[in-house]
Design a protein around this nucleic acid. Structure first.
Lengths: 131, 131
DNA sequence: TTAAATACGACTATTTAAGTCGGGTATAAC
DNA sequence: GTTATACCCGACTTAAATAGTCGTATTTAA
């Protein structure tokens, strides 16, 4: 209940590691080995972040990834939702297709809690975790 | 990601319904029918809450459940953890058995976020949702 | 040309959550 | 005391989401 995904954890670990290394390109393998993360899985996550323009990739030997400037300013809400889709502690906050809906007697208070949680992640920037 | 379980939703819906009905005993069936919740699943959840002394059960015809006084004062953290176990956005906040552990470079900031989330639920009482 | 790396989609496995079933007990009403 | 209604409880099954793997292609430095 209320868990972050591993993908997100791996992404943050990788970002922090890359950030520590400055401008040099770091391979997925290096990170996977260091933090005991399944390499293929990490690689896919890094590729996703390339598409999101969070990081830059370089192919070929001595290739790898490095963090783009500005990433650290992005809110965790955006980061998480870019990687994993919308945050919602219950489904009706996301897709509104709930058989209870009309009858639901806890909808409003739950909605409020949901926005409290979003607020937490809005106030945290990726850089707060990775640097 | 970051979802509440259905069990918790069902529990809260049921509690609110029972609270609306005051001191009379309400059957699992009545609630299940009204909110389109699988009856067996709801029943199990209600039974769990009986054991936790959150509600009182009465057997036999016209039996059912009613809310115990004082439940509304309990924090959502306690309520959720009683029903579903410890809140932890990552596993190492719960069982500490993580192969990364020593190397993990994001442990502290994640831990902080976790306590922020707990804080939200600490400040909410069950009664804030069910009444 | 080779080796090291990313790119990408399909696939499989694992875990967790969700839901079902069967048999038991209590009790009110008749 | 029989019946019907409802709680009690554990075992089981199913479904969904997450996690991880594999194969093949492409890029590029040495």
């Amino acid at each position: 209940m209320l868990k972050l995904t591993r993908k997100l954890e791996y992404a943050l670990i990788a970002l922090r590691h890359m950030q520590d290394k400055g401008d040099t390109f770091i391979s997925a393998k290096e990170i996977a080995d260091m933090y005991l993360i399944p390499q293929e899985l990490l690689a896919k996550t890094l590729q996703q972040m390339v598409k999101l323009n969070y990081i830059k990739a370089a192919q070929g030997p001595h290739g790898g990834y490095r963090v783009r400037k500005g990433l650290t300013e992005i809110s965790m809400t955006q980061f998480m939702e870019d990687l994993e889709g919308p945050i919602g502690i219950v489904d009706c906050n996301i897709n509104a297709e709930c058989i209870q809906l009309e009858n639901c007697n806890i909808r409003l208070p739950i909605k409020k809690i949901n926005s409290n949680i979003r607020a937490i992640f809005n106030e945290i920037r990726v850089g707060d975790i990775t640097s």
